[in-house]
């Protein structure tokens, strides 16, 4: 009985966490899908989003939910600048040279943020109550984060499938040369996708603070970068909603497995939940080498 209760509540927490993982990965997947760029500096943009939320809250008492559009615009702008300044010049360069560039961009943003915000760990407190649901105790802000994530993913999906621009982007993902032949301005699509990818990532940083409003620090991004890499592959790399679903599963696995691993004596179950999640990734890749929702290569 206790076990069942634990499992249910942990799966619930895992679902919430997973939605955050998912939304924090979509930007990475989009950029990879369209531009074939692995954004090593991904986490730095999540950090920017988190700090935007923190700043808006402490300076203007804006609740994080209201900061979402601001962060999106902010992110679009940063993404556009980064693309024009650096990425544009490397589109035709060997694939891996962009990896070095995004590494540099990531560090640059972190260090710039350190000058602006300092190296302290900050946070804020936005209480909107707590939900009690059987064995589950959870703050409404986390539930809000969950719904916002789902909403963002759904909107992105609609935009991709229902609009002309979205279709053009999908065409580039599937066949770059073919898209050129069809008269799509690929460079414009690149600029747009990169900006949207970064915009989404900065936005997800705000949702991260809805979930974890503390421990915000200029170097917080590293953990998210790593998870996002793994999750994006799990989801099949070039599909943002694949990433969302994969993030969801990853969260479920991490938190859900605790209920079982906690029963093993003499180990540290929390670290093992991580192990289980990564093992899950490897098994999936063995069975389906292009990720859960990935198509061909």
């Amino acid at each position: 009985m206790v076990f069942a209760e634990n499992l249910i509540s942990n799966l619930f927490y895992g679902a919430l966490l997973g939605s955050i993982y998912g939304v924090a990965t979509m930007g990475l997947s989009l950029i990879f899908g369209v531009l074939r760029i692995v954004n090593v500096g991904h986490g730095a943009f999540i950090m920017i989003g988190a700090f935007t939320a923190f700043w808006m809250f402490t300076l203007y008492s804006l609740p994080p939910v209201a900061v979402i559009p601001i962060a999106l615009v902010f992110g679009l702008a940063i993404g556009f600048i980064a693309f024009q300044a650096v990425i544009r010049r490397l589109v035709d360069a060997p694939e891996l040279s962009t990896l070095l560039a995004t590494f540099g961009i990531g560090i640059f943003i972190e260090e710039l943020a350190k000058l602006v915000w300092g190296a302290d760990y900050v946070g804020f407190s936005w209480d909107i109550g707590t939900l009690y649901l059987g064995p589950i105790t959870v703050s409404y802000s986390k539930i809000l984060a969950f719904f916002c994530s789902v909403l963002v993913a759904a909107l992105l999906y609609l935009w991709f499938t229902k609009t002309k621009l979205g279709n053009a982007i999908r065409a580039v993902v599937q066949d770059r040369e073919g898209a050129v032949v069809c008269g799509i301005n690929v460079n414009r699509i690149f600029a747009l996708s990169f900006s949207i990818g970064i915009g989404l990532t900065v936005l997800s940083g705000v949702l991260v603070t809805l979930f974890v409003p503390v421990g915000i620090n200029v170097y917080m991004g590293g953990d998210y970068t790593l998870k996002a890499f793994v999750i994006s592959v799990l989801g099949g790399l070039d599909s943002p909603w694949g990433a969302f679903i994969a993030g969801f599963l990853f969260g479920l696995f991490e938190n859900g497995s605790y209920a079982i691993l906690g029963l093993i004596p003499g180990v540290e179950p929390f670290a093992l939940t991580r192990f289980v999640a990564f093992a899950f990734l490897l098994i999936i890749l063995l069975v389906k080498p292009t990720g859960l929702l990935g198509g061909g290569e």
């Binding site: 991580r274 990564f278 890749l285």
Partner: peptide
Amino acid sequence: LRGAYFAIATIGVNEGFRYLIEGVR
């Protein structure tokens, strides 16, 4: 695995290993 799938799968190996060491002490 090819390309990025290979790259990321190896991250999984690395992280999995680290957490295994920490998890089972």
